[in-house]
Design a protein around this nucleic acid. Structure first.
Lengths: 193, 193
DNA sequence: GCCCTATTTGAATGATCGTTCAAGAACTTT
DNA sequence: AAAGTTCTTGAACGATCATTCAAATAGGGC
C-alpha cells in the first residue's frame, strides 16, 4: 500500500474557500485544481467527483465551525457570557473582507437545496446540530441563573439562530461595524429577555 | 416599425420563476426558452444576453414586491397593523411549497454579489429602498402613537429587515408553520418594544 | 396591395465544463 | 536492490453552455 501524498484536511479547507468564493456551480475543476494543488484524477480518486469534494468540504467546514463554537465555552463558567462573545465573533466575521465571511452551510443550502436532496439533508442535519448546541447553552445559562425561565431554551435557541442568519444576510448590504454591532447587541438583549 | 409580439412583463415574470428555481448559473438558455416561450435570438434582441434578462427580471421582481408592500398600507390608518400583517404574509410565503418562497433579490445577491458589481449595486439599491419603506412605516406608526419613541424608526427598520432575512433562511430548514409563526410574533413584539 | 424594416427562428459555433484513462512516478514489501 | 502495487499526471473525451447569424416571417407606412 502507498498512502496519498496530500493532506486531506488542508485540501478540504482549500476547497471550501474555493466554493465560498464562487459558489459550487461556478467553481470549475480548474479552480479546484489551483486551490487544492490536486490534479483532476487525484480529486476523482479521493472524492469520487466534484460533488463528493463538496460534500467532504461541507463536513470539514462543519467540524471546524463546531470546534470553534465549543472553544467559546471551555474555561468559562458563564454560558451566557460565552454566547455573547460568540455572537460578537460572528459580527467580526461578517465584517471581514474576504469571502469567508459567508457561511458555507447556508450558502450551499441556498444554491443546491432544491436540486440535490442529499446535500439538503446533510446540511440540514448540521444546522440542526448547531442550533441544538446553542439551545443547550441557553439551557445551561438558565440553570446558571443568568437567564430567566420565562421562555424555553428551545425558543431562545431558535430566535438566536434566526438572528444570526439575519445578521449575515444584512451584512451583505450593510457592512458597517457600528450598525452590525448595534443590531447584534439588540438581538442578544431580546433573546435573553 | 414593428412591435415585439411578446408581453414583456409576462416574460420577465416567467424568467424570474426560472431563476428562482435553479439559480442564475444553472438556468440554461434552454430553460429560459421553455419558461418564456422566447427563442434565444429574441432574448438577445430584447435583453442583450442572459445577464441582461436577469437584470430586467430583478427589476420587475422589485417592482412587483414593492407594489405588494404598498398594498398593505392603503385603506389602513394603522401603520403598525400594516407591518404586522405584512410580516404574517411573509411567513405564509415562507410556508409555500414552490420555489417562489425565496426572495429573488437575496438569492441573486448571494450567488453573484462577489463576481458582478453591477448586480450587487442594483440589488443593494433595491433592498435599501425596501428597508427605507419599512423604516418610513415605523416612523408613521410612531407618529400615530402606536409605537414608542424609545428607539428610532431607523433602528427598528433595520432590525425588522434583519428579522425577515433570518426568518426566510430559517424557513429553509424548519418549514413548520407553528415555529415560524411563533418566531415572527416574537420578532414583531421585540421590534415594537 | 406592395415594399421596407424589424422581429422571429433555429441551426451552427467556439468555448468550457466535468469526467475518464492510460502512462509514468514513487512508495512498500520482499 | 528489484518487483509489485498504488497514486499521480495531464491530455483527451463527449456533453453542454451562451452566443451568433443568416434566412424566413410578418407588420406598418405609402
Amino acid at each position: 500500500m502507498r498512502s496519498a501524498e496530500f493532506d486531506k484536511v488542508a485540501v478540504l479547507r482549500a476547497a471550501m474557500q474555493a466554493f465560498l468564493n464562487k459558489g459550487y456551480t461556478k467553481t470549475s475543476m480548474q479552480d479546484l485544481k489551483q486551490a487544492t494543488g490536486l490534479h483532476p484524477g487525484s480529486i476523482y480518486c479521493a472524492f469520487e467527483n466534484k460533488r463528493g469534494l463538496l460534500l467532504a468540504a461541507i463536513s470539514q467546514y462543519n467540524q471546524d465551525r463546531s470546534d470553534e463554537f465549543c472553544a467559546f465555552f471551555i474555561n468559562s463558567d458563564s454560558s451566557k457570557q460565552g454566547l455573547e462573545t460568540y455572537l460578537e465573533h460572528i459580527v467580526e466575521e461578517c465584517l471581514s473582507c474576504d469571502s469567508s465571511k459567508a457561511c458555507l452551510l447556508t450558502k450551499a443550502l441556498n444554491e443546491l437545496a432544491e436540486q440535490d436532496d442529499e446535500v439538503q439533508t446533510l446540511i440540514s442535519q448540521q444546522l440542526e446540530a448547531w442550533q441544538s448546541a446553542i439551545t443547550d447553552k441557553f439551557a445551561r445559562a438558565q440553570n446558571e441563573g443568568d437567564i430567566s425561565d420565562s421562555r424555553s431554551a428551545e425558543c431562545r435557541g431558535r430566535y438566536f439562530v434566526m438572528g444570526i442568519y439575519g445578521l449575515r444576510t444584512f451584512a451583505n448590504t450593510h457592512p458597517e461595524p457600528d450598525t452590525l454591532k448595534k443590531l447584534a447587541k439588540q438581538l442578544f438583549k431580546d433573546v435573553c429577555a
